[in-house]
Nucleic acid binder design. Structure first.
Length: 282
DNA sequence: TAACAGGCCACCG
DNA sequence: CGGTGGCCTGTT
């Protein structure tokens, strides 16, 4: 497949590896020295040279530098965000330093919705397998260096799936959530939300079968770029107890995060998550 | 092996 | 409402 574009971005406070591996996105691949990331109708081949240079090759549909920056959160003023987090919670200094370089990515809202519905009570390798299989079944692919990479299905492609296709994903109890989503929603539902407020988005997302407190916050954060979202999963539950000595329901803890971190909740959440996950096992 | 995994829904009080 | 039991399937 043809290389559409190639350029080098100057970056700071950015780690491609950490950003891809911190659980916000599931569909990326490593090929030798490069990371491969399918996005919409494009596949990106990426390599971080030194710390400050990101080499980007775009295959399939072309993407602008600004679009690339948005995908990897390079448009976020992380220095200012970190200052605010430390002002609010000085005891997050260690997690913040250890997670240095993580950016909040931006994916398509409906893709985020499907991804995080697939993620319910599941470990990352299983989630990746489901999403990759779904993409392979629909079969939109771009070949780079002799290897096929499948694009995530367009929403309308999902209507062409047979029940046998869907069964083969082994979604278990999540299957009814997925079936409901492709039967009763369209990509326009998710596009329309872009202009709405946080509360309106949240209300709509929570009304989707299978989308609860945690998943809706993930969609808001990673799908809509709402940096005040604060997804509470099991790692965050442990982290909030450790750093702030708070416990309670997911709903209560989500409110706690919103109130405490306001517009920087998303980054604070990522730092706590990354620290708990990678430096405190169990 | 039995328990649990990056939660949600339905049901109960 | 706020709090709990059961849940598909794949791992450990």
């Amino acid at each position: 497949m043809n290389l559409q574009n190639k350029f080098i971005l100057e970056v700071e406070n950015f780690s491609l590896e950490k950003t891809l591996n911190c659980g916000q996105t599931f569909r990326f691949f490593k090929n030798e020295e490069h990371y491969i990331y399918p996005y919409k109708d494009s596949v990106l081949k990426l390599k971080q040279k030194k710390e400050s240079l990101l080499e980007v090759e775009v295959y399939g549909e072309d993407l602008s530098k600004d679009e690339i920056k948005e995908i990897f959160g390079l448009n976020h003023d992380v220095r200012k965000i970190n200052e605010k987090i430390l002002r609010i919670a000085p005891n997050l200094e260690e997690p913040l330093l250890l997670s240095s370089g993580i950016r909040i990515m931006k994916m398509q809202p409906y893709e985020a919705t499907i991804s995080f519905i697939f993620s319910i009570q599941s470990q990352i390798p299983v989630i990746q397998k489901r999403l990759n299989k779904l993409s392979a079944i629909v079969g939109r692919k771009i070949t780079i260096d002799g290897i096929d990479y499948y694009l995530f299905p367009k929403f309308e492609d999902l209507l062409t799936l047979t029940y046998k296709d869907i069964k083969s994903l082994n979604l278990g109890f999540r299957e009814k959530f997925f079936l409901n989503l492709i039967k009763n929603y369209r990509s326009s539902d998710f596009e329309m939300l872009k202009g709405k407020t946080y509360e309106e988005k949240k209300k709509f997302l929570m009304s989707i079968l299978g989308v609860g407190e945690k998943v809706s916050e993930c969609i808001l954060l990673f799908g809509y770029g709402e940096l005040s979202a604060f997804p509470v999963d099991t790692w965050i539950i442990k982290g909030l107890k450790r750093f702030f000595n708070v416990e309670g329901s997911t709903k209560k803890l989500t409110e706690f995060g919103h109130k405490k971190f306001d517009s920087v909740s998303g980054y604070a959440q990522q730092y706590i998550y990354y620290f708990m996950r990678n430096f405190l096992g169990s």
